[in-house]
């Protein structure tokens, strides 16, 4: 009896970990793409918030959550396009441009919420992306209970980790992307367009950030709430760094953060009297410790954050 209870709890924690990690995984993959090409994207936080809002909006107007997913991803990419234009063409300070995106996202989504729903705080309820039951995963003893029936976006996130890793390290395009982030001058010398690659990578990071946001409003919840990204974009960026700008590494860091969040609920369920404030703090403290632990061993792409001025 007790064993069954324990197994249930463990399965539940694993499932919660994946659910909590999913938005972080999407956004941190976005961070990997952008930073590997040499553009810091602090605006991922705001891009997520836009994704969450327009995901909800798409589902609200069409009653089809998948159209919401599409719209959220699209808007994420469009916002990233602004960042790309500013940082690649205008050679703006990338951190400042990212800060502007975050400022814009908080106010613009709140503004639009009032325009569309005539209310503040949160939108009305919309059709959400329903969980999928994967037959062959469900069959796995013990684990099947945990990972056999989850949101399709969770499976997509895990799939994209491997896809991104393959793309970055096994394909020519991936090699070019990394070359642009390490040494743009050399890359340009061999005929790679720094501008095109950076534009592409930043927009892809916007798609991924938007997807992370969509998961918040249509996967975890079925509505948009003001500032519902709540720092997840920043944590995702920290996961990018902690994962050494590597999709699989970033994935592991996200799982760790997801686990911290999943335990939040468990401590309360188990009746442990830890103030919730400490549990809320945990991911942020973990992030700082992870970054400090990796100092000296994790080296950023050499040209990350530096606008490319062209060959001299």
């Amino acid at each position: 009896m007790e064993l069954a209870f324990a197994i249930n709890i463990i399965a539940f924690v694993i499932a919660s970990t994946f659910r909590a990690a999913t938005p972080l995984i999407f956004a941190s993959l976005g961070g990997v793409f952008s930073e590997r090409s040499g553009v810091v994207n602090i605006g991922l936080e705001g891009i997520m918030l836009f994704g969450a809002f327009f995901g909800m909006l798409g589902s609200y107007f069409t009653h089809n959550p998948w159209f919401g997913v599409f719209l959220g991803v699209l808007v994420g990419g469009l916002i990233a396009l602004i960042h790309a234009f500013l940082s690649v063409d205008l050679k703006a300070n990338q951190v400042v441009s990212g800060v502007a995106i975050n400022l814009l996202a908080t106010s613009a989504t709140a503004f639009l919420l009032q325009k569309v729903f005539h209310t503040t705080g949160q939108s009305s309820s919309v059709p959400k992306v329903k969980d999928w039951q994967i037959p062959f995963l469900k069959e796995i003893p013990f684990l099947g209970e945990a990972i056999g029936k989850l949101n399709p976006l969770v499976y997509l996130a895990v799939g994209l980790v491997f896809l991104s890793s393959y793309f970055l390290f096994k394909t020519t395009y991936g090699l070019r992307l990394r070359a642009v982030g390490e040494n743009p001058e050399a890359a340009e010398t061999v005929g790679i367009s720094v501008r095109k690659i950076r534009y592409g990578s930043v927009v892809v990071s916007g798609f991924l950030g938007g997807l992370g946001g969509v998961y918040l409003s249509l996967g975890q919840m079925d509505l948009f709430r003001e500032y519902m990204s709540a720092g997840k974009g920043f944590i995702a960026l920290a996961a990018t760094i902690a994962g050494k700008w590597n999709p699989k590494g970033a994935f592991l860091a996200c799982i760790l953060f997801g686990f911290a969040e999943a335990m939040e609920g468990q401590f309360q369920l188990l009746g442990m009297n830890i103030p919730k404030h400490f549990l809320h703090m945990l991911p942020y403290v973990l992030t700082i410790l992870l970054i400090l632990g990796l100092v000296g061993r994790s080296v950023a792409p050499a040209a990350s954050g530096i606008p490319y001025e062209g060959r001299k």
Binding site: S97, L103, S107
Partner: peptide, 15 residues
């Protein structure tokens, strides 16, 4: 929230 949007526009421009 309009004010926040206007502030963001300023920061975009200055960036």
């Amino acid at each position: 929230d309009l004010i926040g949007i206007m502030q963001a526009v300023i920061v975009f421009f200055i960036s």
